[in-house]
Amino acid sequence: MTPTPSDKKRTSGNPATRANLELTVKQQRELQKQEKLAEYQRQLARRRRSRLTWWIVGATAAVAIVAVVAASIAFAPKPVTYQAGGTGAAIDGVETFTNTTQHVAGTVDYPQNPPAGGPHNQYWLNCGIYDQPQQNEYAVHSLEHGAVWVTYDKTRVSDADLDALTAQLPSSYVILSPYEGLPTPIVLSAWNAQLKLDSAADPRIPSFFEEYWRNQNVPEPTSSCSGAVDGPGKQS
């Protein structure tokens, strides 16, 4: 029988176990406490990490939603805002008037020179290119149907300028004629609107046509500008 020393403690080949075995009860409790604390702190850290993840996900979602809402407003199809035939305020220098419309016989004393609306003859002047002055009372009736009357001063507009002016005119609903006593070399007149010009190269000419040619605010916007009377000197 091999004698075993009773006073000798259990021993182990493993140094860690040996270390544990060598601890007192108090020390072992302390160690357990430490381990619990470490576990608690690990849990705390995990929870903190998951909260951070939630914040990131939440913030990203919030930004995305705000962006989508903003896009749904920003990219909404815009209603058309441009209206042809406005007040003329958009074109520098256009004067507008308020004229009456009725059929009269004989001559009329017009408030504008050349006339831009008012009482007129029962016959309208057929639209076209004229090389002689025209009767106001006929031409004003054409304005009432949506035509633009382009008048020029023969003494102040050269042939080349006249060609440049003619080239800008639409093929219908326009009267071109010389006019005596114009305030400027060229005047564009529509019903209740007028633009006085010095040159055929003025960039406002196409703007005036865009705004006032066959304007829907004239008294008879879709009426004809042919089939009535040809004035003197009609070229086309």
Partner: peptide, 9 residues
């Protein structure tokens, strides 16, 4: 053209 807000020209 009137309804579409466009010029006749």
């Amino acid at each position: 053209l009137v309804k579409w807000g466009l010029p006749q020209s």
